[in-house]
């Protein structure tokens, strides 16, 4: 309590910046992709890491340059970032005689850079974890320390999710599902870290979750067996439901809604988590105008809620990775179903 009153006293005499907070820019600036990695702002000057912009123009071919040339609406080699309110707002555009068009853009954006960093961390962690097995005979001893942790997590995912959900030939899918789990988990966790090089909203980006869902879609449908496809195109229902292709239609829609739900679930959960934390933190800045006492009180509340939200997000980071992997396993398991097995499982 004494500490809190001390903080509020400090705040009382602190000259309050009366600059109103642009909520839209604040929120979207944090959760959206961008061409440079903004770290902080010192005395009005943004401190950011410039990232390479890689674009292909039909007129002038490939271009690769640093994003710092595009800062503050500047134009470089005919490229500029579309201003607020324009079409393709915030994206790199090209000036052409026919007007502004969107070039093919494979820039290393903030999310791509974050993705690279997180993937590097992930690969490093897993390879460090399994290095132990190259030097020891796992039949004679069990690992401890970091390898023990990695083994515990991997076996938890494999034994609790993959094995029961996929079924007998789970070994074939296990590497993909484990990779998906740890990829999502690590990206979720590093997304919560509020400072560089964490904090990029990667798994809360629809393109990332789209790609993940696409991989699951491919894993399900490329290796589906004949029973799976028979169930889609000629299911065991009365003939009039198949002749007018009502059931096949529903099944085919279901083919796409399953990965779609995976995509939206992960995206929305992580995005919402980031938004919630940002919103709670924004309370501190928004209430600056309301006077020191009010601001101090709400700051305390915001910090408490921020801690709470961060903890919730740690849980969500794990939970969403778990759910994505589990549902992927279930979908794969459904595509590998054998009717005889079903009969066997029904008997007891």
């Amino acid at each position: 309590m004494r500490l809190l009153s001390f903080i509020s006293l400090l705040l009382l005499f602190h000259p309050l910046a009366a600059e109103p907070l642009d909520m839209d820019e604040y929120l979207y600036g944090h959760v959206m992709d961008s061409y440079e990695w903004h770290i902080t702002t010192v005395k009005g000057h943004p401190v950011s890491v410039p990232l390479p912009v890689i674009v292909y123009s039909r007129q002038s071919g490939w271009h690769c340059f640093s994003s710092k040339h595009l800062e503050e609406g500047e134009e470089f080699e005919g490229f500029f970032i579309a201003p607020k309110g324009a079409a393709h707002e915030g994206k790199v555009m090209e000036h052409t005689p026919k007007g502004d068009i969107r070039p093919l853009d494979i820039s290393i954006t903030k999310n791509v850079a974050g993705l690279m960093f997180n993937s590097f961390v992930l690969v490093l962690l897993v390879l460090l974890g399994v290095r132990w097995y190259r030097r020891h005979d796992a039949r004679e001893e069990a690992p401890g320390g970091f390898t023990g942790l990695v083994e515990m997590l991997v076996m938890m995912v494999e034994d609790d999710i993959i094995k029961p959900c996929v079924g007998p030939d789970y070994k074939r899918y296990s590497p993909y599902l484990l990779t998906a789990f740890f990829f999502i988990f690590v990206n979720n966790l590093l997304g919560i870290v509020p400072f560089f090089p964490g904090g990029a909203n990667i798994t809360g980006n629809i393109a990332v979750t789209f790609a993940l869902a696409l991989f699951t879609f491919l894993a399900v449908n490329l290796f589906g067996n004949k029973h799976y496809y028979k169930d889609i195109f000629w299911p065991d229902v009365p003939l009039f439901l198949k002749a007018v292709p009502l059931m096949p239609l529903i099944e085919i829609i279901g083919l796409f809604t399953k990965p779609f739900s995976l995509m939206i679930r992960l995206f929305a959960n992580i995005l919402a988590g980031h938004m919630m934390i940002l919103g709670v933190v924004a309370v501190i800045f928004l209430t600056a105008e309301l006077g020191a006492a009010m601001n101090a009180g709400l700051t305390v509340i915001a910090v408490v809620f921020g801690v709470f939200m961060d903890l919730i997000e740690c849980l969500v980071a794990f939970l969403q990775a778990y759910i994505f992997t589990m549902l992927s396993s279930v979908f794969i398991g459904l595509s590998r179903q054998h009717p005889e097995q079903e009969e066997q499982t029904k008997k007891p």
Binding site: K91, T109, V123
Partner: peptide, 19 residues
């Protein structure tokens, strides 16, 4: 976004391959 999708696919494929 196409660029992110492209990189994501590439990076995930590499990560998947290594792991």
């Amino acid at each position: 976004d196409f660029g992110l999708l492209f990189w994501m696919t590439l990076i995930f494929a590499i990560v998947f391959f290594i792991l």
